[in-house]
Design a protein around this nucleic acid. Structure first.
Length: 271
DNA sequence: CTGGATGCCTGGGAGC
DNA sequence: TGCTCCCAGGCATCCA
């Protein structure tokens, strides 16, 4: 579900409900959704929230005293604002409440590919995020070239690797490669530095526009206020197999790269 | 070390 | 209506 634009939209929609507020209660319905300490305290009970940060697809809720909760939405995860007495939707794994105005924040994730990680210090967050590549909104051609120009993987596999670029998933990989005119199976090491620079610019452009559109809602994705994103209407390849290419009119091709469904234009994205 | 394949989960849609 | 099969936005882990 959520790639960088969706997680950024969740961050922005969640922040007004949390920043500056104190968590009154933190309750966990499933232990196996949490890595690290699982006490209410570790889950931010009693904490005053200072800010919400994001790196790639990871969202961090950071308390004044340094406690951190990392939220990963996986494929079907949601952070939802409700009222404390509203019935809980199915697959709600954790609930936080704040007072004035009384608010409940839910973490639900039907497929359970997502999860929460508790950390005691912001320093630990830096260590976790040091394993990720540069955030997709800031990736530069030099960054990208440095880490992939010796790799023998198909370029799509490299873009999906969170240690190369943080935040790009299956939708935005295909959209970025189309924007740069690069075939998803192109071998990294055979791409010129100029084409890799062009690809980095395409990644930034696609992600920026998708954030402006509040992300792509294929089916489940909603921001914290339950609002859908509208970027699907701007997809040029993802979900458009066999429909005409928006540039040349040729029916778009479907293939599999890195075990993921891949859509591209075989005329605009030559090997 | 690298890169490829597998498995974890639920739910929706297609086809019969 | 109901069954089976296939597919889905991610990622850790295992293997060659």
């Amino acid at each position: 579900m959520p790639e960088l634009p969706e997680v950024e939209t969740v961050r922005r929609s969640l922040a007004p409900h949390l920043v500056g507020r104190t968590i009154a209660t933190a309750t966990l319905n499933r232990n196996d959704m949490v890595a690290g300490e699982r006490s209410p305290h570790a889950l931010l009970q009693g904490a005053k929230i200072q800010r919400l940060d994001r790196r790639g697809k990871q969202l961090a809720i950071i308390a004044r005293d340094g406690r951190v909760l990392i939220v990963q939405l996986g494929m079907s995860g949601q952070m939802l604002i409700t009222k404390p007495l509203d019935p809980l939707p199915t697959h709600t794994h954790a609930v936080w409440t704040t007072g004035k105005p009384a608010t409940a924040i839910l973490f639900r994730d039907p497929r359970r590919f997502g999860g929460l990680t508790t950390l005691a210090t912001v320093d630990q967050l830096s260590q976790v995020w040091a394993t990720l590549g540069p955030d997709g909104l800031n990736i530069t051609g030099d960054d990208l070239w440095k880490v992939i120009h010796t790799s023998n993987r198909p370029i799509k596999a490299a873009l999906l690797d969170q240690s190369v670029v943080a935040g790009v998933g299956n939708i935005y990989t295909d959209e970025s490669l189309f924007g740069a005119g690069i075939h998803p199976k192109a071998n990294c090491a055979r791409l010129s530095q100029a084409r890799i620079k062009r690809l980095a610019r395409s990644v930034v452009r696609v992600l920026t526009q998708a954030v402006e559109a509040r992300g792509s809602t294929l089916r489940d994705y909603r921001d914290a206020d339950g609002q859908a994103g509208s970027y699907v209407a701007m997809h040029r390849v993802y979900g458009r197999a066999s429909l005409p290419c928006t540039v040349c009119g040729l029916p778009l091709s479907r293939t599999v790269v890195a075990q993921r469904t891949t859509v591209f234009c075989r005329r605009c994205q030559k090997l």
